[in-house]
Amino acid sequence: MNTPADEGNHNLRYAEYVLGVLDADARAEVAHEVRTSSEAATAVALWQRRLQPLAEEITEATPAPYVWARIHDALQLDAPPQAVPRKRLWDNLALWHWLGLGASAVAVALLLVVALPRRTPPPLPTTTAVAYMASTIKQDNGTTGWTATMDLQHARMVVVPAAPATLAQGRAPELWLIPAGQKPIAVGMISRDQPTTLALAPALLAQLGPTAALAVSVEPPGGSPTGQPTGPVIAKGTIGAAPETGGDKVAGNARKSTERPRV
């Protein structure tokens, strides 16, 4: 027989569950009750209504764009990985052509400086996502062949030639993404004399990060017939967060379990 005190205590368990102070076993018990008893479900819902408003105080933080790409992949959605593309400076092809004239990492840095103050809409005060990544793709002789800038928000990459080596007649450069310890993934054909914009599929977007590399191989004009590089690799580059993009952390830190930012 339940005394009023027991009932009070029992009800408190639902409050404790909602507050989050129960250990794993007690928590699992209440979760089970919620699924099997409508009374328990109602009691828990009531406590949620009482306590949940505290969550309004929690500061928002923008997740990195690859999180959505991973969700998109895991659920095998067919909608585009980004719902609302916006027209911005990035879309100005003339700028990219102009950049191509003297393209180098300096030019990419310049673009970022030019582009950032115009980012619209203004980011939320606590925006922490990495918006851009960049890579300098160097040839074996040490000179930069291309620079690549990745706009994660809009799932695309612009590859600007700097001083790529001459290729044999009837051969073309193809860009590959190589995740650490994995096979190369074709990104697309690029040009030796003008910037190329490439769309990044969600599967590709999800792999972008400091452990992945970009490489350029020499292929037939239509691209490698096998889906893997067939010709020699003439340039390689690592991927880093583009500088000064308003993100507080590069993605390279994102997965370190030792990092415990106070929020």
């Binding site: 969550a55 929690i58 500061t59 928002e60 933080a61 923008t62 997740p63 990195a64 999180v67 959505w68 991973r70 969700i71 895991a74 939320l124 606590t126 952390k249 830190n253 994102a254 997965r255 370190k256 379990s257 990092e259 415990r260 930012p261 106070r262 929020v263």
Partner: peptide, 24 residues
């Protein structure tokens, strides 16, 4: 809603990588 929910995860987990996994 992802910024709000990511904020909730980060606040509790104090680790970006873990918070990203939970958000997913």
């Amino acid at each position: 809603t992802s910024s709000k929910l990511f904020g909730v995860c980060l606040r509790m987990l104090h680790d970006r990588g873990a918070a990203e996994e939970v958000l997913q």
